[in-house]
Each structure stands twice: as structure tokens, then as C-alpha cells.
Amino acid sequence: MGGDIAIRVEHLGVRFRRSRRGRRSLKDLFGGATRRTRPGEFWALRDVSFEVRRGEAIGVVGRNGQGKSTLLKLVAGVLLPDEGSVEVHGGVAPLIEITGGFVGDLTVRENVRLTAGLHGMSKAEVGRRFDDIIGFAEIADFVDMPYKHLSNGMKVRLAFAVVSQLDEPILLVDEVLAVGDKAFREKCYRRIDELLAEGRTLFFVSHNEKDLRRFCTRGLYLDKGTLKRDAGIDEILEAYGADHPG
């Protein structure tokens, strides 16, 4: 049964500080920290546990500031937990932030090669898929322009185009797609449908009930950094709607 698990989260907790000076020190990170909350700190997530099976499509819901994006970053390995553990069995294709790890002064062409390479795509694979990536992003006229000069919509299209070409079994999608126009969102969603049909695992953060019902069969409801409910997506959306009408 363990081989069917894509993600296992056990008693997960992560804390931040509210001030700019609140970044944890090296002493905190390497042995000097305690599990007691220090002044100015707060727990973004606390005692969160769940499992995701391979091929499941999970919707993560909750109001802003309840830990949804933080959870995705922990699964992606961008953040490290202060308590508990995250096990990810298989690579992840993360679409979490609009920048997608791109470098502003590099051209679009250079960024595609760099970012795809960092995600494990070989130079030959990048070469084979480059035209598909640029074509999907609809930015063929801008491949030799510095990335920083792209519009936000173009950046979203490029990020999704790169991530959707990765062969990783787990797809992490935050609400970054909300920046794109309606036609491109639908194009992205058709691509997600294709990836799910291939058996990929989806972790999807959204406030859009229609999108959540389209892709997800199960939901996680986060409230004040804790997992309030883990159930079928319809039950999750009903519970969330009852708690936050309108």
C-alpha cells in the first residue's frame, strides 16, 4: 500500500515571524531553535496530517492567509518544516509563483533552457520541446527579449508552458493561473485534464469552486493553519461555503 502514496504529511508545522527581522537565524536552523513560539512568531501551519495517493486530484481551500500556499511550498521543498515531516514520492512540477524561478535579465530562450534544466530536463529534451513550450505560451515573437520585460500574463503563460512539459508525476498549482486571461486559463485547464488522464497527481489551490469541482475529487480545508476537514470535494466546498457565506 505504501507504494500507492505520492505525498505523506505527518504532524506538519511551520512558523514565521511577522517582522522583517523575523527570518530565522543560522542558530535557529541548526540546533538553537526550540518548539516554543517566540515573541513575534506565528504558526502558519500546525499539526497537519494527510496522505495523497498516486493519481489523486486534491483541491486545497481556505481563506487567504490560512496556510494553503505555504503547504504547497513545503510539498515542493521550497520551505522546510519546523515540526513533523513531508514525504514526496516522485518529482514535482511546481506552478506556485508567477516568477517560476526565472531570471529577469536573461532572455526568454535562456530562461527556458535554464529552468527546464533545473527541473531535470536534459539539454536534448529542452531542444525537442522548446517550440512546443514557446508555442503553448504564445510568445514566439519574444524569445530573445529579457524576461523582465514580459507582461504578467506572458510570465504566467511561460511558467505554465514549461511546467506542463515536465514529466514529473506530481503537479502543484497555486492560484497563479488567475492572472491569465480566460482563453489561456481554459487552454491550461485542458492541459491539466490531459495530465490527469495520464495518471498524474494534482495538488490544486484555488478559490474558484467551478475549477475545484472540475479537477478534484477530494479536498483539504485549511483554517487558521490547521486541517479542519479532509473529505470529498463537494463536502469540502459545502463546509467552506457554510463557514464563509457570500
Rank of each mutant, 00 (worst) to 15 (best):
M1C: 09
A6W: 02
I7E: 11
V14R: 07
G22F: 14
R23T: 03
R23G: 10
R24W: 14
K27F: 11
P39L: 04
G40H: 01
L45H: 05
S49F: 08
R53N: 12
E56H: 01
G62Y: 00
G65E: 02
K73L: 03
L80H: 15
L80I: 15
V88A: 11
G90L: 00
G90R: 00
V92A: 13
L95E: 12
E97H: 01
I98W: 13
G101Y: 10
N111G: 02
V112F: 05
V112R: 02
T115K: 06
T115G: 04
T115A: 10
G117D: 03
M121T: 03
R128I: 05
R128W: 11
G135F: 09
G135H: 03
A137R: 00
E138H: 09
A140C: 04
D144F: 03
K148H: 12
H149D: 11
H149W: 05
L150V: 00
L158T: 01
F160T: 01
A161W: 07
V162T: 02
D167C: 11
I170Q: 10
V176Y: 12
K182D: 11
A197T: 05
A197M: 02
L202Y: 09
E209I: 10
R214I: 02
T217R: 10
L222D: 12
K224R: 13
L227P: 07
A231D: 15
A231W: 07
G232M: 04
I233K: 10
D234Q: 08
I236Q: 05
L237Q: 05
L237F: 08
L237A: 04
A239I: 00
A239V: 01
A239F: 15
A242C: 06
G246W: 12
G246V: 14
